[in-house]
């Protein structure tokens, strides 16, 4: 009878999550060696810490293998279809903030809006014989955003890292990626479209709607949520 809490297994996201819970009287910590992914929880009974890659937390929540999980809203929306039916947002944690944006080369002086991008996409396809490429790892979010905006004649190419470099490397014409300060975009001579903000994301505590809970676990969850001072 335990409540499983999934937390990113490394880096700033893990530390900030530990701090956030610590400030509310629940201490989370990794145990064993640096390389061992095991953890312990103090300050409340019946909660088990599960260390996971932030990218896997949405899937584990939707499969009901963890009851609670900390991950970015961007990842939940990208990876889970009909996400509201699978997880519930309990609390934004106030860190890990990033915007999913659409950016094009700064030298495209003729492009400022999605409307321009759509016009350029039509001309690009005519000139080059293939659809304008947008590099991203957020396929679903970008596709939905562009469909709603009525942008046509583009294609998404997968880029799991160094996405801003794809334009210079001639493997894409535009990028859709997460940025917090815009520094990397500017360094790579890119600019954000004025209406190209797709999603404002931050680290968020999610509750699985799929994980089975018995009466005992329900009581632990209630106690935990109360101690964290958040609305359930």
């Amino acid at each position: 009878m335990t409540i499983k809490l999934g937390v990113p297994s490394k880096g700033r996201l893990m530390e900030k999550t530990f701090d956030w819970f610590g400030a509310r009287g629940i201490s989370l910590a990794r145990t064993g060696s640096d390389r061992e992914y095991a953890g312990k929880v103090d300050g409340i009974e019946g909660v088990e810490l599960v260390l996971l890659s932030a990218g896997e937390i949405p899937r584990e929540l939707s499969a009901g293998r963890i009851h609670l999980g900390v991950t970015g809203t961007d990842l939940v929306r990208e990876k889970l279809g009909m996400w509201e039916q699978q997880v519930k947002e309990l609390a934004p944690l106030g860190f890990g903030g990033a915007d999913l944006i659409l950016a094009v080369p700064a030298c495209w002086v003729d492009v400022e809006t999605l409307d321009d991008l759509d016009a350029v996409a039509a001309a690009f396809r005519k000139t080059h014989g293939f659809r304008l490429r947008i590099a991203t790892k957020y396929h679903r979010l970008v596709r939905e955003f562009l469909r709603d905006a009525g942008v046509a004649d583009y294609q998404l190419v997968d880029s799991q890292g160094a996405t801003e470099g794809t334009i210079k490397n001639l493997t894409a014409e535009a990028v859709a990626d997460i940025t917090s300060t815009g520094e990397t975009l500017r360094a790579n001579h890119l600019k954000i479209l004025s209406d190209g903000l797709m999603l404002k994301s931050q680290a968020t505590l999610f509750k699985s709607r799929k994980a089975p809970v018995d009466d005992g676990e329900k009581a632990i969850l209630t106690r935990l949520i109360e101690q964290l001072g958040i609305e359930s």
Binding site: P105, A106, D110, L170, H189
Partner: peptide, 27 residues
């Protein structure tokens, strides 16, 4: 943009497959 005498003034370096000729054609 249409009124600008030097639209590329603050463009920075040309990068990517879409060339200056294409940008000029759109302008």
């Amino acid at each position: 943009l249409a009124a600008s005498s030097d639209p590329f003034a603050e463009a920075g370096p040309m990068i990517g497959l879409r060339g200056a000729d294409e940008i000029e054609a759109r302008i």
